[in-house]
């Protein structure tokens, strides 16, 4: 989906204050990106351009850092966040196939958000529920022993 910048108002003010604090300090890049992502929930393109100008770090290098660390995301999060556990136990009990089904169902890759903004998908390592594998979490709900056939039902419960 197109990444639209939702700049404006409160968040813009917060970002400007953040950038003012670190203006001309290239070494502060990672902490600025952290805080910018806290403000927006993700890192919109326009925000990265502003960070590049304020800190005097070329945009290509800013994006290099953003794309290196999996913590950073350039995609806005969906209303519901799906985490698929690919820890060892879940993996051996079919997490990979589960993920494949989710990708097909949602038509997105891990790290992305569906076009309607409903779901975002991510892969996590071990949710501490190994005995219940394969496990997925949707928002705060843990779904245990998920078989691929159950995915449509699980998702429809969350659709608005």
């Amino acid at each position: 989906m197109a990444v639209t910048c939702q700049c404006g108002g409160e968040r813009t003010r917060k970002l400007e204050a953040l950038l003012d604090r670190y203006r001309g300090q290239p070494q502060a890049l990672i902490q600025v990106l952290h805080q910018a992502q806290e403000i927006y929930g993700y890192l919109p393109r326009e925000v990265l351009k502003k960070v590049s100008l304020a800190l005097n770090v070329p945009l290509s290098q800013v994006y290099g850092v953003v794309s290196f660390y999996s913590f950073f995301t350039i995609h806005p999060k969906g209303r519901h966040r799906i985490s698929v556990c690919k820890g060892t136990a879940c993996y051996v009990r079919g997490a990979e196939q589960l993920l494949e089904h989710l990708r097909e169902e949602l038509r997105i890759k891990p790290g992305e958000t569906t076009a309607d903004g409903e779901f975002s998908l991510e892969v996590v390592r071990c949710l501490g529920a190994c005995g219940l594998g394969p496990v997925i979490m949707v928002d705060e709900d843990v779904h245990a022993r998920v078989m691929p056939e159950r995915i449509p039902d699980i998702l429809s419960a969350y659709r608005s």
Binding site: R45, L59, S60, G64, S67, F68
Partner: peptide
């Protein structure tokens, strides 16, 4: 610059 990570590493412009 160097983008992405691991096997996906690529020299490319931003985004």
């Amino acid at each position: 610059a160097v983008q992405e990570r691991g096997f996906d590493t690529v020299v490319a412009p931003a985004f």
